[in-house]
């Protein structure tokens, strides 16, 4: 017979043991010291699935203390099932406060969105990253992409960018537009919409990127130059929501979700759930808006 005692668990504060936390912390510091460079780390298994935010969770749990207030969003929403799940786990394991209020959070863990509201120097945005290697779609081998980064050889990614332009008439090729960080490393901003990319540059907050499955951490420190890749004559542009207003708030100038009704008619809603709440209640929080070049 197995005694029940054998299965009784007592977890360390914030779930991860201190030895592992130290490793994540050392690697995170190095990531901040070399902006845009992907630092390998051990990335132990977590009790949630690989690809469901383990990298973000490693970072958040290595950062969090009892005085922190944590916000978790997925696709811009606090309500997403996976966001609820991660938030509950962090709250239970770290005994910290949680919030939906973007401004009240000290740590925000997010998947696929940067909040609309401007983040401050007291805040850290942790982004979950499925594929940290921006060059993976042009070179499948890790050993070779390492060398390409070492030599700052980014010719192949420029070619795909040009090809995307020829095919679609825009540089924008889905989410996660490649960025040049501090003039040296080409990196992925994680699959955020282009709308969010300009907000990575010269921001007040610290951005940390965790890819648990691929075992990589990268970072963008505050006040760091981040340039979306673009050509002199073909410029990077963010999504345009022309003539579009949010059907819940009547407002515009935010990243919008398109919602289909029963009869397939389409309407739009502001994607960032907390931002939507705030614009409906007023006053509208401050935003950094990017103006597309002509």
């Amino acid at each position: 017979m197995i005694e029940n005692l054998r299965f009784q668990e007592s977890f360390n504060y914030a779930y991860i043991d201190e030895f592992t936390k130290k490793e994540i912390r050392r690697k995170t510091l190095k990531a901040v010291c070399i902006p845009g460079y992907q630092v390998p780390y051990a990335s132990p298994e977590m009790p949630i699935s690989r690809g469901w935010g383990t990298g973000g969770l490693h970072l958040t749990l290595s950062l969090v203390g009892p005085d922190d207030t944590v916000k978790v969003i997925d696709q811009g929403s606090d309500a997403s099932v996976n966001a609820c799940n991660l938030r509950l786990f962090i709250k239970e394991m770290a005994k910290c406060a949680v919030t939906f209020d973007t401004a009240a959070a000290t740590i925000i863990q997010s998947r696929h969105r940067v909040p609309e509201e401007i983040l401050t120097e007291k805040q850290i945005l942790v982004l979950q990253v499925p594929q940290p290697e921006v060059l993976r779609r042009v070179e499948r081998h890790e050993a070779k992409t390492r060398i390409m980064h070492a030599e700052a050889d980014y010719a192949k990614i420029w070619v795909t960018l040009y090809e995307a332009y020829v095919r679609s008439g825009t540089l924008r090729n889905g989410a996660g537009h490649p960025i040049l960080v501090n003039g040296r490393y080409v990196a992925t901003p994680s699959p955020i919409p282009s709308w969010d990319v300009p907000n990575l540059s010269m921001a007040r907050c610290l951005y940390l990127f965790g890819a648990g499955r691929e075992k990589r951490i990268h970072a963008i420190p505050p006040f760091t130059r981040v340039e979306p890749l673009e050509f002199d004559d073909i410029r990077f542009k963010v999504e345009e929501f022309i003539g579009v207003h949010c059907s819940a708030s009547g407002q515009d100038k935010a990243f919008m979700d398109q919602i289909y009704a029963e009869d397939f008619s389409r309407f739009w809603v502001i994607n960032d759930s907390n931002f939507l709440d705030k614009v409906r209640q007023g006053p509208r929080p401050s935003q950094r808006l990017f103006t597309n070049p002509e």
Partner: peptide, 19 residues
Amino acid sequence: DQIFDGQKHYRTLLQCTAR
């Protein structure tokens, strides 16, 4: 306290490294 002081000090080191 290795857990809680460690956490606080790490955050200080991270802030300093970022700024």
